[in-house]
Design a protein around this nucleic acid. Structure first.
Lengths: 145, 145
DNA sequence: TAATAGTCTACTTAATCGATAGATTTTATA
DNA sequence: TATAAAATCTATCGATTAAGTAGACTATTA
């Protein structure tokens, strides 16, 4: 289950994607439309900025905006930022690898092997989902009503 | 990332699967071979028992053993027991559904839609992985050395 | 009737999550 | 150039959960 922090970051990024190329969006606007506690959102946006996903403008007319286009931001990058590894076990992780310390030999560990399979498929799927995909999915679903 | 509890439960279940039909296995044996703190393991095994995955025998010659065959126990069941929902968001969960409280309409929420896709595929994979699969995977890997 | 082995109740400790408060810095514009 | 608007920084807080421990109790079997 994703942490609130990760959820809020997805909500905020989708919101910024909807306003892409329409100037900066206020923290308080995001906070109000997405129902995210403002102070908490502030720290999330700062972290997103530190990691090069968004940029900000201070002062009047300021706010936050996407650096890359909605097509270029995928779920895998976003999740890794706040959740760390995508794999279910550290020994099966790619970017956050750690030994599990339980099996005798990692290379022949059956548990690691199957968890790695799951991770590979999950990462493949997540990399294939961009902010633009989420938005277009939304408009598709609206048509079906 | 899986909790220690879930990891230990997988390790313990795979161990019991290896000893399937060879009589009960002592808690202390599992604790020692799998490097799991004994007292912690006790509570995990009790929970597995309460949920009908294992059974136990008290007194001399006692211990724990699998109720179902290693082919019949899959990762999805095991994970759900200790982690709760497999989905990354409660609104995308099947067995542990909860509203997220952020979108206006769940049925047209793009985030929920893509997270649900990921969940469906994850569950499909996990259901396809049994304790027997993990063990046979291990023997396969041993051949490649 | 001992020894064995699982069961139950109750803590504890540390870490993490989610959130808030308030002071500070930067910037646009009137 | 003063002022209002916004982001930024520092600090802290309470609640919850994760992980693990201690010890008494109960059931079984040789």
């Amino acid at each position: 289950m994703l942490s609130k922090k990760t959820r809020y970051s997805i909500l905020a990024m989708v919101k910024l994607a909807r306003e892409y190329n329409q100037g900066p969006v206020l923290i308080s606007t995001i906070s109000e439309t997405e129902l995210i506690p403002k102070k908490f959102l502030e720290s999330i946006l700062l972290e997103l900025k530190k990691n090069g996903l968004v940029n900000s403008k201070k002062g009047k007319g300021g706010g936050y905006y996407l650096i890359k286009s909605p097509e270029q931001v995928n779920l895998a990058d976003l999740l890794r930022l706040f959740e760390g590894a995508i794999a279910l076990l550290p020994c099966a992780a790619y970017k956050y690898y750690e030994s599990c310390g339980h099996c005798k030999d990692e290379l022949t560990c059956g548990i690691r092997a199957v968890i790695k399979d799951i991770r590979d498929e999950t990462v493949r799927m997540m990399k294939g989902i961009s902010l633009a995909d989420i938005i277009s999915r939304e408009t598709e679903l609206l048509k079906t009503i």
